[in-house]
């Protein structure tokens, strides 16, 4: 289908973008790469009066490695972050998870911050950001910026803590710490489809932080002790997420995946990358 009609605005800086957002109220949507939003517009699931294109704002286009985090500006595409030299060493979880985002062709335009802003519960980047305890940086029309912990930012299906006149300017992924292990696994109908269950893990000695996406209305994390049998706690975790049946999988199957893949991940089993590598021989 074709999108319903809307005004198209192309602000030249952050402040102007926030001003336009403020003026338009609930009638405006921001667009950067548009790889989620354009599909929604084409199917007329959303019919905003105004579309505010931030892709041309120069100073949103940066990837910066700072003291303890990798900052990714709102103009950066997923492909650009994947090609960032040393990503696997700086934020190994991203290097593992990002090839699972859509396809080569959508990663070429889809932005990192756009995926965070869209807040699809099955998306890989929100899951990574929450599991790593990263931050979202927002700026309003007065030029005032605030940082929100990822765990507080996602509030439900396609719902975030972003206020009406705010623009996400960057997201911050904490850098890998020495000695820690990072793992990502995903189960979907086909590679590139929405995750039925996605798991991200940070293994810090005996302490394992396990994040789960694709089940609850947002990514959810729980901490496990590697020395204890995770059987019961994993089962309780799986039930706590309120899994639902849909066209792709039953709730029971989702819980089973969390129990089995979660156990594997906590025990430090092979990552998907290793499995794929082994399969290729």
């Amino acid at each position: 289908m074709k999108p319903a009609a809307f005004d198209y605005l192309r602000p030249s800086n952050r402040r102007e973008a926030c001003e336009r957002l403020h003026e338009a109220g609930d009638d405006a949507r921001l667009i950067a790469g548009g790889q989620s939003l354009m599909a929604v517009l084409n199917m007329r699931l959303a019919q905003p009066r105004q579309l505010i294109d931030i892709a041309g704002i120069e100073d949103l286009h940066f990837i910066e490695r700072r003291d303890d985090h990798l900052a990714v500006g709102a103009g950066v595409t997923q492909a650009e972050l994947l090609e960032y030299p040393g990503l696997a060493e700086a934020v190994p979880l991203l290097a593992q998870a990002m090839p699972w985002i859509g396809h080569w062709q959508t990663r070429n335009r889809g932005t990192v911050c756009g995926s965070i802003a869209h807040a699809d519960p099955s998306a890989e980047l929100p899951l990574c950001l929450v599991t790593l305890e990263g931050q979202v940086v927002l700026e309003n029309r007065r030029g005032k910026s605030r940082r929100v912990m990822a765990g507080d930012f996602f509030q439900g299906v396609l719902t975030t803590d972003r206020r009406q006149d705010e623009l996400i300017t960057e997201v911050r992924f904490p850098l890998a710490r020495p000695g820690l292990e990072y793992r990502f696994q995903e189960v979907s109908m086909r590679h590139g489809d929405f995750a039925i269950v996605a798991l991200a893990g940070v293994i810090d000695g005996a302490r394992v932080t396990l994040g789960v996406g694709g089940v609850a209305d947002r990514p959810v994390c729980r901490v496990f002790d590697r020395h204890e049998d995770p059987g019961e706690t994993l089962n309780a975790f799986a039930w706590s997420l309120g899994a639902e049946d849909d066209a792709h999988a039953t709730a029971a199957y989702r819980r089973q995946l969390i129990r089995e893949r979660g156990r594997e991940l906590i025990a430090g089993g092979p990552s998907d990358e290793e499995i794929a590598h082994a399969r290729q021989g």
Binding site: Y8, R10, G34, Q35, M38, A39, N42, L51, D53, A55, A79, W104, Q105, T106, N108, R109
Partner: peptide, 16 residues
């Protein structure tokens, strides 16, 4: 291809 990158032309506006 948009600036060399393979992209869906249905997920992009002409004005972009």
């Amino acid at each position: 291809r948009v600036d060399g990158r393979a992209s869906r032309s249905c997920l992009m506006l002409a004005v972009q």
